[in-house]
Every structure is written in C-alpha cells, then in structure tokens.
Design a protein around this nucleic acid. Structure first.
Lengths: 215, 215, 215, 215
DNA sequence: CATGAATGAGCATTCATTCAT
DNA sequence: TATGAATGAATGCTCATTCAT
C-alpha cells in the first residue's frame, strides 16, 4: 500500500512537474518568436519588451521570468538562428566530396537558409548587432562556426589545387560576401524573387568556375 | 504716389521675402546637415529632434517650421543619401571610357559610398524602409536611378563584346549583389575593416576578369 | 489497541508538531536576522523582501507564511532593535552601583547601540515612524522602557544628592538629548567618526561632572 | 510716432518677459516646497518625482524643465535651508559682544530655526544625506558655513578665557551635538513641546555655565 | 520667424503581493 | 510547508509634438 502509493504520488508529481516545465518552455518559445518578429519590425533601439509582452498577451513583468533583461532576450533570439544555420552549412559540407562542389553546396545552403528564415538571417547578418557578437564567444560550444566551414571547404579546394588563389582569409570572405549579397538583396528588395535569387546563384557558379577553377 | 510708391513697396516686400526665403532655406540646409551628422553618429533609431535642434542652436520647435515631423526630416535626410549616391555612381561611370573599367569604377564608388555613409546606406538598402520607398516615387526627379547606371554600363560592355553573357537583367543584378555583399558585410560586421573591404573589391575584380571578360 | 495506540499516535503527533513549530520558529528567526542584516546594509527604503528571500535561500512567497507583509517584517525587525536597546541600557544600569557612573554608563551604552545599529536607531528615534509607534503599545511587555531606565538612574542620583537639580522630567530629557545629539550627529554626518563620537562622550562626562555633580 | 511706438512695444515685451519669468520662478518654488514636504514624508528612496508632480498638479515631465533630475531637485531643496540657517546663526553671532552669551545666542538661534523650519532641518541634519554633502562644496559661496560660526564664537570665548577647554574641534562639535539633540528630539517626538525644548535650552545654559565657564 | 511651456506616451526595470498547486 | 507563475503599480527618464505668444 505505502509503496505503490508513494510511487503513484511520485508519478503524479513528476508528470505535473513535466507539464509545468513544458508550459514554461512553450511560453519561452512564444516570447522568443514574438521578439524576433518585433525586433525586425522596429530595429534594435525601438524594440521594446512591452510590445513583446503585449504581442504574447502577458504582462511585461512576465518576460523577466524567462530572460534576465532586454539584452539577453535579444541575444537568445539570435542564438537560435546561429544554431540552425551552422547545422545547415555543416550538412551541405558533408553532402559531397568534390572540393569545388562543396563550396557551391555550401553557398546554396547559405542562400536557402536566408530565404527560408529571412527574419533570423536579418538578425544575424544585416543588423548592427554589436551586442550579439560581443556575447557570442561566451556561448556554449553548440554553435558551429559557420564561417569556419566555408573557410575549410575553400582551403581544401586550394590544397587540392582545384581552385587557385593565395590569401587564406580574403577569398573565403569574398565568397561569403557574394552569397550574402545575393541573399540579403533578395530579402530586402521585394522585386527580387526566390527564383531570381537561385538564378543569380547559378550564374555565380558559372562565373566562379571560370574565375577560380584551375583549367 | 500710388503707383510708383506701391511698386517700391512691392519691391521692398519682394526683396524682404526673398531674403527671408533664403534665410529659411539656409536654416533648412543647416537642419538637414546637422540631422545627417547626428544620423551618422547615432544611427537611425536613436536619432532625436532635440539633438538636431541643440546642434544647430535653435529650439526644437523651430524644426517644425521646416519639416512636418520627425519622419519627414528623416526622409529628407535619406533623400540626400540617394542624391549623393546617384551622383557618385554617375561620376564613376563618366570617369573612364573603357567598358569593363567602367563597371569596376562603379563598383568602387558603390562601396565607397556605403563605407562613408553607412547609416544612409543601411536605410537605403538594408532595411525594410517602407516609409522611404513609399515616398520616393513622389519625389522630384533629381534622383538618378542608380541601378540603371550599372545596368547601362554592363549592357554597353556586353554590346562591345568586352564581356560575355546573355540575360539583360540577371548579370547586372548579380554584380550589384557582389558589391552589395561586400559593402553590407563590411557595415554589419565590425571585424571587417574598410581596408579589408577594398581588398575584397580588388580580388573581386580579378575574378570578374577571368569570369566575365572575353578572350 | 485503541487507547495506547492513540496515545502513541498522539505523542508522535505532538512531537511532530513540536518539531514543525521549532522548524518554523527557526525559519522565522532566519528571516528576521537576514532582514536585519539587509536592513543595516541597504537602509530602510531600499530594503526588499526578495533580497531577504534570496539571502536565506527561500522563495519570496515563503516569507508570507511567517509575516503578513513587508510592513510586519519591518516592524518585527525594528522591534528587535527596541528589545536589544532596552537590554543594553538595562545592563549598563546594572554595571555599577555608583549613581553618577550609572548615568555615564547608560549614556555610553546608548551611543554604542546607535553606532552599532544605525539603521535601527534611525528608525527608532530619527524618523516619523508612525507605523512603529502605533503598534508598539500593542506589543508584548518584553520591551523595556528605555527612557524610564535613564530617568530612574537620574532620580536616584538626585535622591542620593550626587547631582543637583529639581525638575523630575527636564533633566533626564536633557541628558537624553545630549546623548541623542551625539549619536544622531555621528549617524547623519559622515565626517564624524565613531572615535570622534566617543571623544565627545568623554568630554560630555567632564562637563557633566562640573555641571551637575555636587561638590 | 515710430520711436514712442517701438518703446511701447519694447515695454510690453519686457513686461511680458518679466511676467513669464516670475511665473516660472513661482512654479519652481512650488516644486521645491512640494518636494521638501514629500521628501520628509517618504524618505530619500521612496521620494518620487511623479508624486511631486501630482502634488503640484503638473505632469512629471514639467519638473525636468526646472531641474536636471531627481538629485538636483533634492539638492536644491536642501540648499534653501542651508542659506536661511547660516544667516540666522550669523545674526545671532552679531547680536552680542559678550563671548559666552554669543555661544548661548547661537544655540538659541539654532533651536529656533529647527523648530520653525523642522522640515528643512530634518533634510539638513537628520537624513542620511550623503548626496547633499557631496555637492555642497561645489556650491556658490552664498552659503555661510554655519558650523564655522559656532566654532569661531567658541574659540573666541576660549581665547578670552571666558571658558576653559583645549581641543579646537571637539568642544564646538559637542556643543553642536547638545543643541542638535534638543532640536532633533523636539522635532521627532511629538510629546516634546516647543516650550519644553526651550526649557531644556535654559537648563543647558545653566549646566554650561558651571561646566565651562571659568571662575 | 522663433520659442518656452507643457504634456502624453513610451521605455526598462523592480517590487510587493496573490493564487493555484 | 513551500513555491513558481503571474501581475499591477510604481519609478526615473526621454521624446515628439502642440499651443500660445
């Protein structure tokens, strides 16, 4: 009696705790997504906790139950993007063994992410986000250094003499700029459609083949 | 008495009006330039009417005599950016007769503007600045269509068979994306310096030479 | 079964109750002492329930199980001050049998308390602490009427003809004012150090000797 | 016509300006007095600009038209007290030439000020007013150093050998503490009436005569 | 033409308190 | 007994804007 009883009580308690925790997590997510949206709509300075609160139908105070302050909320918002992004690039890297194709594959994944998650992309690379980059290094290692992936792919292609070039840093940054240009333009200008962006990416590949590849 | 008198009075009045108008215009210019300065210094969101007023030594109220409200002032400030931008590209276009160099020259001017007026650039091309694009078309024609300049330079190069390619729109857009990528990355990421950006531009030229140029 | 059983159960229950009550009392004490500490550290106004909670490692809500609200906690905290104060004066009174020295001893204890518990002292004697004085009379008798101690010491000294004077109330009040002046000045003005205060007390003794003592 | 006209216009303008300035000054005074009152009622931390605003029937923002921020307002509040106080003590000093009587006269003025302006007195000497004393030195010289007056009177009495004693600082501070004790006790405890306070002052004089005076 | 006075709305943040569990 | 979730109220402060002059 006593034993099974206590077990049942325990089980109930555990379930109840779980339910609560899930509820809490859900609210956290809600806050995060509302924040993401509002951040982009209003920019860093005008972004306000109170609007986030109103958006999700809670009191402003409640947000402090989940985030230390405005800055932390904003930071966490971006963090999600960084996590996803890194994973997508990593997958793209692993998709092929051919060095040049790897670079192309990464570029495609890059643009794909930007077009699929324009909101996060904006937050990550198009905003004056000093506050983000200041905190990023202090973060847990779960974030894959996205740029490093591209850099690695390129340096491997260089080593394999598939492409030519010298500077270890300049070339990856430029390739990054290329895809970033395509992605961000597509995000910012409504007259540039997704298809258009992918066409640009195709043409970009052609140019890179003649521009970079060794015979 | 009546005629000549009234005429003289009229003349005086006119002069006075002129003087006044000039004075008014001058103040307007002062406001705009102060605004631009603060704009660059503090960014879009933190920019405040009161600061502009203090900068020029007038009361905040006075600004309302020249601009309907903050938004209009901001818009006019951005407009100056567009004007400048168009002129810089146009000058760059005219700087050389060699078709390919023209494209390069425009690209350089593009990046230069972005780095010199990052806030303007951001407002112009990196934000969902609805309020700007809605009003732009209603504006006086003093604004040169910047994209058209690049497009013209490229189509001329194609015609002159200096570069190869087909699509009339895709290539200019991609080139645009290239320089926009370089520029906007440099603006957003603190670790990319101006010099770095210009180096990228240089490398970009090299790639374009092999990637685009005929023979 | 019934009787002895119920007795044992009762005993257990009683013990359990006792233990619980002791636990409760213990927590209460913990809260009070944490409160006192923070009270001294942060002053009356800045003192917050949440800080107390954090200090003792309980949730803020828990405090409400022991005190009706912040005011009651504050009151109880002050009460401790009064209790302490009374005891210190009483001890000082009993420290010597020589009537004049008694007065001096009480004065010293007085100032010592004020310097050691400045926040309590302030609350007790330097503030319009309505809420305290309204509740004080309803309190259990554990609080010793501090003024009465001084009054008694003085009237005894008068009776013993060790000092001269007439009015039964005026002289004690004045002596009180003397030490209160020294104590409160030392509390309020940062440039008056503790040592300074004790020096003043010494000089005060000298003056009182010539001013009050009978040949 | 023109001359007198312009003069009249000028006069009107001047008057109008005067009126405005007076109005502004009046409001400033209103704010100050409301602030003084509320400060004492609620203490430093709980004292709030918004309450002051409500008290005087203006919006909170309006206060910023007269004072830079909360701290400045509070500081100005005390300043008034210091000014008055210094003048009263100075007058008391000059009231007689007899060294010992001077000290007594100053003491009486001291208590008189405290009883007449208890609110200011509290603010000046009974509150934990670090923030005041930090700013006081930076103030214009219009404030007479009140303590210096007492100090001077005492050192003159010592020089004239009317009273005996050595330490240059300790004695004045103690006398200060005496009168402060009487004054502040009278302010804090409702059961001590003004008359009572003056009686204490009288008895204090008697004690000082035997305690300090030579021969 | 220019301005001083005034305000309402908004912000981040902290706190005491309540309620369901 | 103890607590997590939630909130309403309050605070200092800044700003765009209006109005009377």
């Amino acid at each position: 009696m006593s034993k099974s009883d206590s077990t049942r009580a325990q089980r109930i308690k555990t379930k109840s705790l779980e339910r609560r925790e899930q509820k809490k997590l859900k609210l956290r997510e809600e806050i995060l997504s509302a924040a993401t949206e509002l951040f982009l709509e209003h920019g860093y300075e005008k972004f306000s906790l109170r609007q986030v609160a109103e958006e999700i139908g809670y009191s402003p105070t409640s947000i402090y139950l989940h985030f230390k302050n405005k800055e932390e909320l904003l930071f966490m918002t971006t963090l999600e993007g960084f996590r996803n992004f890194g994973q997508m690039l990593q997958t793209a890297y692993e998709a092929t063994n051919e060095p040049f194709e790897r670079i192309i594959s990464i570029g495609r994944a890059y643009v794909k992410f930007a077009l699929e998650y324009p909101v996060h992309y904006r937050l990550m690379f198009m905003q004056d986000s000093d506050f983000i980059y200041k905190q990023l290094p202090d973060c847990d290692g779960s974030i894959i250094d996205s740029f490093a992936i591209l850099q690695k792919a390129i340096s491997e292609a260089l080593e394999a003499k598939v492409i030519h070039g010298q500077d270890e840093l300049l070339l990856p940054t430029l390739i990054w700029a290329y895809v970033h240009g395509i992605a961000s333009l597509a995000i910012s200008l409504p007259e540039i459609s997704k298809e258009h962006a992918y066409d640009m990416l195709e043409l970009n590949k052609v140019i890179l083949i003649s521009g970079l590849k060794t015979s």
